[in-house]
């Protein structure tokens, strides 16, 4: 009888331990990791495969990432072919739970109002085009709410017992986004309609949200390094439009942007496009704080 009681106690402890185990969530980017942490709280443990200083298009798959995915309960990705490298890692991980169509596979681009979907014939002569549209949608804080909703829905489906916890976190996240969005919009309101130059076309969602106009890109075509001829055209546009800021992400080569800035007097604004991309951009909210602050400072001058 004593033995039976000990066994029952042992199984109870085991089952409690199993219940307490946080869900292992792997995200392709640090932005998704930050939002997932907001929603999942202590019920999940999040690992991002890419670093914030990396260009998500060019992440080099490594064997250690395979192990991270093998042990994952949920993998969250940007989708729209932005983080396409995740697929070879998923295939190598032999984890059926995170394959396409399974509960552990979450592409958070669902529900996003996608911009710049290419039309007509598409080929590599047009540069590195994304056939499903421009994938930099997380740079619009309003889309952060859609991402958060997708994550909350999926976490609730996997852990229904914690559903109310996830939706409560979602509500708090949305409230904070709404409050901060007002602040960010007020901060950039004086520059509504201001033209900006960008290195890469990562900014349509951000620009639309804050009323900025992307007047030109330093890359002649997406993913194609700037040529001297194209930079001459950019200089002409920057001068003609009175562009004050050239936005470049931390992982791009600053030299072409400096060249244009020297010729025109515009200011090069090096910004993170992901959480962890720069000091101070420690989570999704502070990433937006840094972005809005740096762009405002440049436009003020």
């Amino acid at each position: 009888m004593k033995k039976i009681l000990i066994m029952i106690c042992f199984f109870c402890v085991l089952s409690l331990a199993a219940e307490a185990r946080p869900l292992k969530v792997v995200t392709t980017t640090t932005d998704l990791a930050s939002i997932a942490e907001e929603i999942g709280g202590e019920k999940i443990r999040v690992t991002s495969l890419a670093r914030g200083t990396q260009d998500h298009h060019y992440v080099e798959p490594r064997p250690s990432m395979v192990v991270t995915l093998r042990d994952a309960d949920l993998v969250i990705m940007i989708g729209m072919d932005h983080d396409i490298w995740i697929q070879s890692l998923i295939n190598s991980a032999r984890n059926p739970n995170i394959r396409f169509g399974r509960p552990g596979y979450l592409d958070v681009s669902s529900g996003i109002d996608k911009k710049e979907i290419p039309v007509g014939r598409i080929d590599a002569s047009m540069g590195h085009l994304h056939i499903y549209g421009n994938p930099h949608y997380w740079l619009d804080p309003a889309n952060g709410k859609i991402i958060a909703r997708n994550i909350a829905d999926r976490l609730s489906a996997i852990m229904p017992e914690n559903s109310s916890y996830f939706y409560e976190n979602l509500e708090n996240f949305n409230l904070r986004i709404d409050e901060k969005l007002k602040e960010w919009q007020e901060e950039l309101a004086p520059f509504r309609g201001a033209p900006i130059a960008v290195y890469h076309g990562s900014w349509p969602y951000f620009a639309d949200r804050f009323g900025l106009e992307v007047a030109c890109e330093l890359e002649p075509k997406p993913g194609i390094p700037p040529s001297p001829g194209h930079l001459r055209e950019v200089i002409e546009i920057v001068r003609r439009r009175g562009i004050k800021a050239i936005i470049i992400e931390v992982f791009h080569n600053e030299r072409p942007a400096r060249f244009v800035a020297d010729a025109t007097g515009a200011q090069v604004v090096v910004v993170p496009s992901s959480v962890g991309g720069m000091e101070g951009a420690d989570d999704y909210f502070s990433l937006m704080d840094v972005l809005v602050g740096k762009i405002r400072e440049a436009l003020e001058k």
């Binding site: 996608k114 039309v119 549209g133």
Partner: peptide
């Protein structure tokens, strides 16, 4: 669009992005 020599983009599915090899 026709004057600009373009055609309308195919509708984008609302679900997750299809995998490479799943047919576009």
């Amino acid at each position: 669009e026709l004057e600009a020599g373009r055609v309308t983009a195919p509708p984008v599915p609302g679900g997750p992005t299809p995998l490479p090899g799943m047919g576009r």
